[in-house]
Design a protein around this nucleic acid. Structure first.
Length: 829
DNA sequence: TACGGGCGGGG
DNA sequence: GTGTACGCCCGTA
C-alpha cells in the first residue's frame, strides 16, 4: 500500500526514536503509552491493544481443558477493583531443555496479575506459574520486540485528539551517525537550611531553581528583585515552582538530568509542590519506592546521574568520592564554584540581593555541570537501554547484576524460553552461604626483574562461559561423554548441545563486541564514535558481569555450579599456561586470575609470541591468550608482615618510561602528597635504572629537604572527610581536632566537607597525641611542622617494602648514614 | 568473628 | 505496582 493511501484512510506516519514507555488505565483497561523523540519534538502515542498475562505450567497427566475451565472462573474483587481472568490461550515455551505447552492466562488489568497469582497457583492441576512479575510496559516491549533508543516508523490513527498506534516498524536505515539525540536539561535546586543536620521539605522552602539546556539557561528565585536575561525573580516559592513546570512544559525536554535528584532535588520539588497545593497537569511525579526513593516523571526520562555514576558509570575513574564536585572535576574537568551553600540562608535572611545573585550563579553552574555530565553519560545509558530493552530511567538505576538479568529476560523472551522466577527470600539466604574457590594467584618472589613479558587471557570468564556451554540449564551432575567436564573433580559438567541461554547470550555479546571494535577502527565522526564506544563498553559490562550474576543470590538464572565451574576452568587454563611456559624455558614470576608475567632471560620477544600462538592453537575457539606487553623492568614487593611476595602489588616500567602501578596505595586521600610523591620517585628510580642505591640517595635527599624545611607545605596536608556534625564525634581524631580548629578560625564547617590539616611539632616538648598537635594549612611555617612525623609515618611506610624487596633495610640504611640522628623509636603515637 | 545498622549524594 | 539498590564501614556482642 502506498503512503498516500494510508493517509487517505485517516492514518499518518511518524518517524522517531522510542524514548520510554509507560501505561495508564482508561475505563479499567490498560493503555500503553509510547514516547517518541522526533524532528518535531516529543510525541506521545497510545496503544490500547495489549493485555496483561502470566504463564501456567500444567502438572503431568492433567486434563488441560479442566484446568482452563477452572482458571477462567477466577475472580477476586477487592476495594472497588475487579480482578478476573478474561481468557486462556495455549502457548509453546522452552523450560530448561524441554519444550512444553503452557497456558497463557490473560487478566483484565496489569494489577490483576499480582492480585490473582496466588489463586492461580493453587488451582488444581497447576504445577507452577511463571512471568507474573514482569512490569507491564517492559512486557509490551518484549512481546513487540521493541527497544528504547531504536528508530521506528509508526502508523497512527487520530482518535479524540489522541494518536493511536496501528503499526510499528523499526527503521534500520538510520545508523548511529544519523541518530537524533534527544534534548535534555540539567536541574539543580538550593534550599533554605534552618538546621544543617536535618533538611526537610516540611520546614525548609526551595529558594532557587536552575535549569540548564543547550539554549536554556535560567535561574528562578523565590523572592523579589530585578530580572535579568538569566535570572527570574518569581516573588515567592509557589510562583517559582509554577514557573518551573511552565518552562518544562514549553521546552518539552526528553531527558531531565539531576545529581542525587532521586533523593534530593526531585523528591524535594515533588513534596514542596504537594505542600503548597500546586496544581499542575504538566508534570507527574511517581515516587516508586519505600526505601531509597526513585522519582519518575511521566513522559520524561529523569536520570539521576549520581546513581548511575555510583552504580555503573564511575568504575575505573579513580574517584575519591561521588560528590558532584569530585565527579565533575574528574570527568569534565570543571567543578563547583567555591561557595558554601549553607550561607545562602544567611543571605536570604538579610535580604542581601548581591549575595543571593552570587548563589544563583553558583546554582546555575551546578545545573550546567550536571547537564554536561549527562551529555557525557547519555551515550552509555542509551546504548545500554537499547541493548537491554529497558527505558533509560530504568537502566541508569540498575546494578550490573540487574542489567544482566534484564538482558537475559529479553533473550529468553526472544527464544520463547520461560523466564525463571525470582527466589524466595529464604532461598536467597541459603544461596548466600555457599562459597567456592576463587581465582588462582601466583605468589611472586619479591625482587626487581628485568625484561618482563605479560600475557593475558582476553575476557577470560566470558570466553570460558561461551566455549564450555556454561548455562543454568546445561549443567549436569551425571557422567556424560558429550560434555565439557569441570577440571576440578566431582563438579559435574555441561552438555555440549543444545547451547544454553547464558552461554548463547554471552557468545552473541562477544561477537557483537568484536564487530563494534572492528567498526571503531574505521574513520568515523565523533558522534558515531562515541556511540560505538559506549556500545562496546556496554557489551563489555554485560559480558564481564555474567559470572558474578550466576553466583548472585537473587538471580533468576542463579547457578552455583556454573559460577564454580567458571572459576575452576579459569584456574585450569592459567595453570596450564604456566606449566607450559616453564617447560619451554620461560621463567614465570607472577600470575593473577587471567594474566601471566614472565622474565625473558635468554629468550627473545619473538619466541614469546610464538609461544602464545602455540597456546592459542590448543585453546577453545572463543578463548585467546594475548600478548599484553613488554616491560623493561618490574618490581614485586614484600607483603606487609609476611616473608613472601605480596599478591596484587607490583610496578612495571615500559620501554617509553611509563610506569604501571598496581596495588600501591598512592591515591588514598588520607595520605599526604609528599608520601605519594616520594613513593613514586623511589619506584621510578628503581625501575628506570634498576639501581636501588640511586633510589636510596633520592630518598635521603628528600628527607634532608624535609628536615631543612624545604618543602611545599601543600604537600604536607592530610585530607579527611568530616562525615557528621562535628560535636557528635565521640573520639577526637586528628581530623576532628582540625575541623574544630577550622571552625574557631573560619566559622562553620558542615558534615560532608573535607578538612585539611598538617601535623605540627609539640610546643611543650611532651610529645602529645597527634590530635592535640594539628594545625591548619595556613598556619604552617618552616619550623612548625613535625618533620619526624612526616618522615616516620608518611614517608617510611610508603617506601619500606620497596626497599626491603631489594635487600635494603630502610631503618638501618638511614640510621648509619645520618650518623647521630636516630630515626625510629623516637615516635610514639 | 559475626551481625546489625547506617550511610552514600544533596542543602 | 506484573520490579524495591548494594557494598562498605562502624560499633557491639
Amino acid at each position: 500500500m502506498s503512503k498516500s493511501n494510508e493517509e487517505f484512510e485517516g492514518r499518518k506516519k511518524i518517524e522517531g526514536t522510542l524514548l520510554n514507555t509507560d501505561y495508564f488505565l482508561r475505563e479499567g483497561k490498560a493503555v500503553i503509552e509510547l514516547f517518541f523523540w522526533t524532528d518535531a519534538g516529543k510525541i506521545r502515542i497510545e496503544d490500547d491493544n495489549f493485555e496483561p498475562y502470566l504463564l501456567v505450567e500444567i502438572k503431568d497427566n492433567e486434563r488441560i481443558e479442566g484446568i482452563v475451565k477452572e482458571l477462567e472462573k477466577i475472580r477476586n474483587d477487592e476495594k472497588n477493583k475487579e480482578h478476573y481472568v478474561t481468557k486462556c490461550e495455549f502457548v509453546k515455551r522452552r523450560i530448561g531443555l524441554e519444550n512444553k505447552e503452557f497456558i497463557k492466562v490473560i487478566v483484565n488489568r496489569p494489577s490483576s496479575v499480582p492480585a490473582l497469582k496466588g489463586i492461580i497457583r493453587k488451582t488444581k492441576g497447576v504445577k507452577e506459574i511463571y512471568e507474573y512479575d514482569i512490569p507491564f510496559a517492559f512486557r509490551y516491549l518484549l512481546d513487540k520486540g521493541l527497544s528504547c533508543f531504536n528508530d521506528y516508523s509508526v502508523s497512527v490513527e487520530e482518535k479524540n485528539e489522541r494518536l493511536m498506534l496501528k503499526r510499528i516498524q523499526e527503521i534500520n536505515a538510520l545508523n548511529s551517525a544519523e541518530r537524533r539525540m534527544p534534548n535534555a536539561i540539567g536541574i539543580d535546586i538550593e534550599t533554605f537550611v534552618s538546621n544543617e543536620d536535618e533538611i526537610k521539605p516540611e520546614k525548609d522552602p526551595i529558594l532557587m531553581i536552575s535549569i540548564y539546556g543547550e539554549k536554556l539557561k535560567k535561574i528562578l528565585i523565590a523572592g523579589s528583585g530585578k530580572d535579568t536575561e538569566m535570572i527570574e525573580w518569581c516573588g515567592n516559592e509557589k510562583a517559582m515552582l509554577e514557573r518551573l513546570f511552565e518552562i518544562i512544559n514549553a521546552e518539552q525536554p526528553a531527558i531531565i538530568f539531576g545529581y542525587n535528584s532521586d533523593s534530593f532535588d526531585m523528591s524535594y520539588i515533588a513534596r514542596r509542590t504537594e505542600l503548597l497545593g500546586i496544581k499542575h497537569n504538566e508534570i507527574e511525579f511517581k515516587d516508586s519506592s519505600k526505601g531509597m526513593p526513585i522519582v519518575k516523571i511521566k513522559g520524561y526520562a529523569h536520570i539521576d546521574l549520581y546513581r548511575y555514576i555510583r552504580i555503573a558509570g564511575g568504575r575505573g575513574l579513580n574517584l575519591e568520592n561521588y560528590s558532584l564536585d569530585e565527579v565533575a572535576n574528574k570527568i569534565i574537568g570543571k567543578g563547583k564554584n567555591d561557595l558554601n551553600p549553607l550561607e545562602l540562608s544567611n543571605a536570604w535572611r538579610e535580604n542581601n540581593e548581591k549575595k543571593i545573585i552570587e548563589f544563583a550563579i553558583y546554582n546555575l553552574n551546578d545545573a550546567e555541570i550536571t547537564y554536561e555530565l549527562g551529555e557525557r553519560f547519555l551515550p552509555s545509558i542509551s546504548e545500554l537501554s537499547r541493548l537491554i530493552c529497558l527505558s533509560p530511567e530504568d537502566v541508569c538505576r540498575m546494578s550490573f547484576s540487574q542489567l544482566v538479568e534484564w538482558y537475559l529476560m529479553k533473550r529468553a523472551s526472544q527464544e520463547k524460553a520461560i523466564i525463571p522466577n525470582k527466589p524466595e527470600s529464604e532461598e536467597s539466604y541459603e544461596r548466600r552461604k555457599r562459597r567456592f574457590e576463587g581465582a588462582f594467584v601466583f605468589q611472586p618472589t619479591p625482587g626487581l626483574y628485568d625484561n618482563i613479558v605479560v600475557f593475558d587471557f582476553r575476557s577470560l570468564y566470558p570466553s570460558i562461559i561461551a566455549s564450555h556451554n556454561i548455562s543454568t540449564e546445561t549443567f549436569t551432575n551425571k557422567e556424560c561423554e558429550d560434555c565439557y567436564t569441570v577440571p576440578d573433580k566431582n563438579q559435574g559438567g555441561f552438555i555440549k548441545k543444545p547451547t544454553g541461554l547464558v552461554s548463547k547470550s554471552i557468545k552473541d555479546i562477544l561477537k557483537q563486541r568484536r564487530e563494534v571494535k572492528a567498526r571503531l577502527k574505521k574513520d568515523l565522526d565523533e558522534h558515531e564514535k562515541s556511540l560505538l564506544k559506549a556500545r562496546e563498553q556496554g557489551l563489555k559490562t554485560l559480558a564481564n558481569s555474567m559470572y558474578g550474576y550466576l553466583a548472585y543470590e537473587r538471580a533468576r538464572w542463579y547457578c552455583y555450579e556454573c559460577a564454580r565451574a567458571v572459576a575452576s576452568f579459569a584456574r585450569y587454563y592459567i595453570k596450564d599456561v604456566i606449566s607450559k611456559a616453564n617447560k619451554e624455558g620461560f621463567h614465570v614470576i607472577y600470575s593473577d586470575t587471567d594474566s601471566i608475567f614472565i622474565t625473558l632471560k635468554d629468550k627473545t620477544k619473538e619466541e614469546c609470541i610464538d609461544f602464545v600462538e602455540q597456546i592459542n592453537k590448543e585453546l577453545p575457539e572463543e578463548m585467546e591468550l594475548e600478548y599484553e606487553g613488554f616491560y623493561k623492568r618490574g618490581i614485586f614487593v614484600f607483603a606487609k608482615s609476611f616473608d613472601k611476595g605480596a599478591k596484587k602489588r607490583y610496578a612495571l616500567i615500559d620501554e617509553d618510561g611509563d610506569i604501571n602501578i598496581k596495588g600501591f596505595e598512592v591515591i588514598r586521600r588520607n595520605w599526604s602528597e609528599i608520601g605519594k610523591r616520594i613513593q613514586m620517585g623511589v619506584l621510578r628510580r628503581m625501575l628506570e635504572k634498576g639501581n636501588p642505591e640511586e633510589a636510596l640517595d633520592y630518598l635521603k635527599e628528600e628527607i634532608e629537604k624535609i628536615r631543612k624545611g624545604e618543602v611545599d607545605f601543600k604537600e604536607l596536608e592530610i585530607r579527611t572527610k568530616i562525615t557528621k556534625n562535628i560535636n557528635s564525634y565521640a573520639n577526637i581524631s586528628p581530623h576532628v581536632a582540625a575541623a574544630k580548629r577550622a571552625i574557631e578560625k573560619r566559622g562553620k564547617i558542615g558534615a560532608g566537607s573535607i578538612i585539611s590539616y598538617i601535623v605540627a611539632k609539640s610546643k611543650t616538648g611532651k610529645n602529645e597525641r597527634i590530635s592535640e598537635r594539628v594545625i591548619l594549612p595556613e598556619e604552617c611555617t618552616k619550623d612548625s611542622y613535625d618533620e619526624n612525623y612526616y618522615i616516620e609515618k608518611q614517608i617510611i611506610p610508603a617506601v619500606e617494602s620497596i626497599f626491603k624487596t631489594v635487600g635494603i633495610d630502610i631503618e638501618s640504611a638511614l640510621k648509619s648514614k645520618e650518623s647521630q640522628q636516630t630515626l625510629l623509636g623516637f615516635y610514639s603515637d
